[in-house]
Simulated assay, not measured.
Amino acid sequence: MRALVGLGLVLALGACDASEPVKPAVKEAPEVKLATVALDAPIRVLGTEPFWNVEIAPAGLVLTRIDQQPLTAPNNGFEANGNVVLWTSAMPDQTPIKITLTGTDCSDGMSDRIYPLSAMVEIGTETLTGCAASVEALSRASEAGRVE
Rank of each mutant, 00 (worst) to 15 (best):
L34C: 06
S134W: 02
I123H: 06
V54F: 02
V45L: 03
V147Q: 00
D93A: 10
V26W: 08
S134L: 04
P24C: 00
I97H: 07
K98N: 12
L61G: 05
P70M: 05
G77Y: 05
E28D: 14
M110S: 11
Q94V: 10
P42Y: 06
Q68K: 14
K98P: 05
T100K: 12
M110K: 13
G82M: 02
T64G: 02
M91P: 05
P21C: 02
E136I: 06
A59R: 12
A35W: 03
T48G: 08
L101N: 00
C16Q: 11
P96Q: 07
L101V: 03
A80P: 11
S89G: 09
G77Q: 07
E143D: 09
A57P: 10
A137T: 02
A35P: 08
E148R: 10
G8R: 11
A29V: 11
I66Y: 05
T72Y: 07
A141W: 06
E136W: 03
T125W: 01
A141S: 15
K33S: 13
P21I: 06
D112K: 15
S142L: 11
I123M: 11
A133N: 01
L128F: 12
A144I: 07
P116F: 00
A41C: 01
E143A: 11
T100P: 02
E143G: 05
V22F: 09
S118W: 00
P116E: 01
Q69K: 15
G109V: 10
A137C: 07
I56Q: 01
K27S: 10
N83A: 08
P42G: 04
N53T: 08
I97M: 14
A38V: 14
L63I: 06
A90N: 13
E122R: 13
S19Y: 09
G124E: 00
S107R: 12
D93Y: 06
V45M: 03
A12C: 13
R146W: 03
G77L: 09
R140C: 01
L13R: 08
I123R: 11
A90I: 04
G103S: 00
G6S: 14
W87M: 07
E20S: 12
V85E: 00
A35V: 04
L9F: 14
R65T: 06
D105W: 04
P42W: 03
V147M: 01
L63G: 01
G103T: 03
V135S: 11
P70S: 06
M1R: 14
P70L: 05
M91R: 08
N53S: 13
A35T: 06
K33W: 07
A3T: 15
E148P: 02
E31M: 12
G8Q: 10
G130A: 04
G14Y: 09
D17K: 06
S89F: 08
Q94R: 13
I66L: 05
E79K: 15
N75H: 10
E143W: 04
V5M: 06
D93L: 06
D112L: 14
S107K: 15
D112M: 14
G8W: 09
A25T: 15
I56V: 15
N53A: 04
V5N: 09
